[in-house]
Structure formats: C-alpha cells, structure tokens
Design a protein around this nucleic acid. Structure first.
Lengths: 337, 337
DNA sequence: ACCGGTCGTGCAACCGGTTGCGGTTAATAA
DNA sequence: TTATTAACCGCAACCGGTTGCACGACCGGT
C-alpha cells in the first residue's frame, strides 16, 4: 500500500458529486437516486476502489479484527487451535492477528497493549507459564473488551474459559488401560507448572483409586522435552518391576516414550500398552498407531471463537462461563489386546 | 475496546493544554518544555494511555502490520513457516495478520483485498493450488506493495521468491540412498499440481540418471493423503520386484508409507530404506527415526520475512530476487546401513 | 401565489492522532 | 527603551470514510 490508493474522494471528483454522496451510494442508502448509485458503482469498479478498512475502523471503532495470544507457535497443540480459530473468524468476515508471548509475562502484557492499540474487537488468549499477575487482563475486562481464555487459563479471573476436561480425559485413559487388563500404569508428565499436568495427574490418580490400585510414585515421571521423556522412560523400563502401561501427557512426551520403547524393543501393547494426549494426525504416525485422548485443538479453537463472537454480538453482557469439552478416546493398536 | 479508551484529548483537557502539545510531548519533540513533557508523561501513565494504532495507521499510512496468506493451516508445513515468520515480524515491532485461502482462488483474491484494505505494509504469500490468474498479485505489485512469495510460488511473475531447492533436495536424497547401496529407488509424490512434486521428481530422476539407473515408472507413485500413500505403497511392496528404498515427498506421504511398512513388516533400512521431506520434529517420531531432507519451514519463514522487511525499508525499489535455500540432509536410522 | 412535503444532495463535524505554520511571551541584545 | 529572537504552544488541516442536519428543487393541494 505504498502508492496512492484511490478513495471515495477520487470517485466524487470524477463524478462531480460530494464524497458523502459517494459514501452513501456505495452502501445503497435510500436517499441516493438510482442514477447516481449506478454511476458511483460503475466508477468504483472501474477504478478498482477498495474501501479503507483503517479509516472505517477509526470511525466506528470496529476493526473486524480478532486478536490471538498464544505462548508459542511450535508444534503440536497451538497450530491446531489456530487452525480452528481462523476458520471461524474468517467465516464471519473477520480477520485474525496473531501474537506469541514466548512464555514471557512481559511480552504477554505488551501483546495485550498491541491488540488494544489496534482496536481488536475481541481477544483469545492462552496465557504464558510465567503469568502470575493478571492485571493486564482484568483491566481489559473492565474496559469491556470481549475476551475468552482457552487451554492455559488463569486461575482466578471472571471470564469465559474453554478447555477440555483433563481430569476426565486422564481418568478415561487410565480406565481404558485397566479395562484391557493393565494395572501397573505409569504416567509421563510434562511441564509441572502447567495446569494440564496437575489435572491429568489427578485424573490418573482418581482412576487408580477407583480401581483400588495403589499409586506407585516411581511410575510418575516427568519429561519436558522429548529427550527427557525418552531418558526417564528408559529408567522406568529398567525398574525391577516395570509398568505394563504408560500414559503420555503430550505429543512431545509421547515422542520420547515411543523412542524409549523402540530402543528397548518393548512389544506394544503386549508388554506395555501406550496411550497419550496426542493430536489425531500425529498419533497415527507411530508404530503401532497409538491410542489417544484427543486434545481437541481445532475444536477448542472453534468453540472459543464461537463464544467470543457471541460476546461480541451481545455487547459483552454475558455471564462468564467455563466450557468444558470432553475429549474423546480414540482406540488404536497400542492398547488393543 | 468497547468502552471509551482514553485519548490524547483527555490528557490535554486535564492538563489544560492542546492536543498537539500532548502529541509532541509524548514523542519528545524539542519544542515542548521539560516541565510540560513530564506533566504529560505522568498523566499518560496515570490514565494508562494507549496510543490508537488505527488512527496513526490512517495518518501516515503505516499500519505496522504484515499480511500472510497461506493455502492451509493444517499440519505440517505451514504452521512451521508461520512460526518462523512471527518471530521475525514481532522482533521488528510489527504484527502479523494471517489469512487462509483454503486452496481457493476466490478466497485468495478476497484475502489480497482484505490485506490491502487493512493497509498492511507488506505481504507474504504462498499461493493456492487453483491459482492460475495472477492479476490480483500483479496489481499489488503495480501498487508498489512489498510482496514476497514463498514455497508455493507463481511461475511467471516478477517478484521476490523464497524456496528450497527441491530439485537439489531430492537429488541429494536419492544420491544418499545410492551411497548406501540402494538402486531400486521409489518415490511417492503428493499433489501433482504442486511445483514441489515436479521439482522433487526431477531431482529424483536427475540423480538416477547420473548414476545410470534406469527409471522404473512403477516406482513412481502418488499419495495425496496418508491413506492413499499407504495403499499405493502396499501395492509397491507387492510387486514381484519391489524397491529397496523409497523417498517420501512430504510428511503426509511419509506417514502413509511408514504405515505400509509396518503392516508389511518391512525391515528398515535393511529391506527398504526410507527418506523423506519431513520436519525435523516429526521425522523423529517414527521407528526408526527417518532420514530427511529438512523442508526448512521455519527457515523459509524467517528468510522471506527478512527479505520483505528489506523491501519495506528500502522503499520497495529492490530488484526481484529468488532466494533458493539449500535444504540439509539429516541422516537417521532409516538409511543407516 | 402560498404552504407543506419529498427527494436528492452537500456541508461540516467526527473518529484520534500528526504536523506546518503562526502567535505569544519573556529573555537578550542594541 | 526598543528591536530581536529563542522557547513554547495552539490553530487548523489532514488521513478516508460516516452521518446528522440543512438546503434547494420540485411537486401537489388549497
């Protein structure tokens, strides 16, 4: 947009009318005669007139832009969410502005400022690990900006939340493992600061408790990176009494776990069954394809966006609501006995 | 931004000065006395004043926004590219507006309009499969909007292009297979309309030719989806004279190929070696981890963005240039004899 | 000939900043 | 004391489109 774009003023001059007339003609205002309307439309087409969204945004304070803040764009989860979001946003004639916080509190605050500056009509956020102080969000809410949190949600704030029921998800996974006869069930956690870790862990414990299986602390390992997960899993496999099933908390940990399994030539699922929280696409890449509790990335994006637009259209007067999606269990060969 | 945000006018009124003074004070203009500057800054901080990016964008026609059009946001390639792009864009204090064309020509045209309307300062594009007519891009270029194409580039247009040398990539892959003693080398293509398919195919052929290996048409298969790739690979494996190596053209085809390998209990790499064009992260998920010609998603995004900013900063007067990244070969167990 | 009402259009203010230019004040030089 | 000038600041136009209001032309009815 470096060159002079043509404006309604150009059309007005060429037609010898005022710019208000052009403006009204373009939006089919009843005040304008058909003759004038046609002339304006013709001219607009001819000059390839494109309305200036920035000017309109300034005028009505509606930018037709939705802001998104995610901690990272690295695989696997957030790109899927974005996919779900973009579909919905685009469907409504809105556009999406994406910002990464890179797990930094300062950048998250700055990103909120940027989105405010750009007059976005609503914001979707998954907060960074470091975020403790929530004042940048509370002030947004006080300013009456529609906002929906998803996945990485803040603990104490009055706002819409969209997430999957991780406790239930882990519970379901573990019950499934039990149902195929496994009882020595391990879990590989990811970053302990994330709510998903503690939630999934508690679902895991809940299921064991329900089935009167004692919790073995040796079976609870942590792998923030794929390598770490791989190493920890190897240690697990070397225990005198190793597990007969393992639950991976993320795509990344699953990747490490499966490497360890291959290295130790474990038979899946006979020796050890494997299940994880993996995107459908990725869960099928393993040998055998792994059973999974779908983390529902696309779905989360879709639902969060729908809720955001509900807020936008109803003047943001809705009661804050937490939407708990229940993730679905997909059974594949890694748990088929 | 539904509520009244505070503006320089609010500050001006409270301080009993004009808005021009506030404006100048905020940007440290020498005309303004230190006393006034301090007062303004204090008040701005106190009221949590946030400059209105939209108004500024309207004024100097600089939006600080970069537009991105991709065919899809589904895994695997484009999310990586976006990751690379966002890092660079953000680093420069710019923001990113993302649009999907969903492989539709009409949506691509519409997306270009949207970006123009939003006064983006530059555009990054990977074109849709359906795009034949390029007039929406040529008119952009005539309007002097900085633009850089990447990966899916149009054939005949004068503009910057960033891509990996696919011919060389495939050539390298095949030579690597030959170097470990394979000679019956198959290739699984993806969508035949994509330039990467024909380029990688020609690199494949070139390498075979160089080593005087006859091209076997039976060894050239196509799998647009993972399932199709799986089925075609199975057929391949049932040939009376099956290949001893296979080159996968994408993550998706690799996924299908590996499934077929597992199903047929092929030993990798002894029976058949496998190599693909896979993202590093994903190539390690297989058993064994597969060798790969890195498609350099993040890198492409980075380079394309750097080039775009070069254009933006140098008033778009650069000669169009095609940047050919050479992808690197990563050798893993799937080709280690 | 006068009044009221429609129809079509233009004027000007507005959104929130930026900026050229001109004006006011006080300090300094002549 | 007066002219000069630097230091500070305000006016108003501008970016591109929107919109309340007024205005002129034209019509029919009395």
């Amino acid at each position: 947009m470096t060159n002079k774009a043509i404006t309604i003023i150009d059309i007005a001059k060429l037609l010898g009318v005022s710019k208000s007339t052009v403006s009204r003609a373009l939006k089919d205002h009843p005040d304008i005669s058909n003759a004038t309307k046609e002339a304006v439309h013709m001219m607009a087409k001819q000059l390839k007139y494109k309305p200036n969204a920035v000017a309109m945004s300034l005028r009505h304070k509606k930018s037709k832009v939705i802001g998104l803040i995610v901690p990272t764009l690295s695989p696997f989860f957030f790109p899927s969410v974005i996919h779900g979001i973009e579909n919905e946003v685009n469907k409504r004639g809105y556009n999406l502005m994406i910002l990464q916080s890179n797990e930094s509190y300062e950048r998250e605050v700055r990103n909120v400022d940027i989105l405010q500056s750009n007059n976005v009509e609503g914001i979707l956020v998954s907060i960074s690990r470091k975020t403790e102080d929530l004042s940048h969000f509370t002030s947004l809410i006080e300013d009456n900006t529609p906002i929906v949190f998803f996945d990485r949600i803040p603990k104490s704030i009055q706002a819409d939340m969209v997430l999957v029921d991780d406790v239930l998800g882990a519970f379901t996974a573990v019950e499934h493992l039990i149902s195929i006869g496994k009882r020595k069930i391990a879990i590989c956690l990811g970053n302990p600061n994330l709510l998903i870790s503690s939630n999934r862990l508690s679902g895991y414990k809940k299921a064991l408790k329900k089935h009167s299986i004692e919790i073995n602390e040796e079976f609870i390992i942590t792998g923030e990176s794929s390598e770490e997960a791989e190493n920890e899993t190897k240690k697990l496999l070397e225990l005198t009494n190793p597990p007969d099933a393992i639950l991976a908390i993320s795509d990344l940990t699953m990747s490490g776990i499966m490497k360890a399994m291959y290295a130790k030539k474990i038979k899946i699922p006979e020796d050890i069954a494997v299940i994880g929280f993996c995107e459908d696409t990725f869960s099928q890449m393993y040998n055998p394809p792994v059973s999974t509790i779908d983390p529902m990335g696309i779905e989360i994006g879709k639902i969060a966006t729908e809720r955001l637009f509900q807020r936008i259209h109803e003047n943001n007067i809705l009661e804050p609501k937490t939407i708990n999606l229940s993730s679905r269990l997909i059974i594949r060969d890694s748990t088929k006995i």
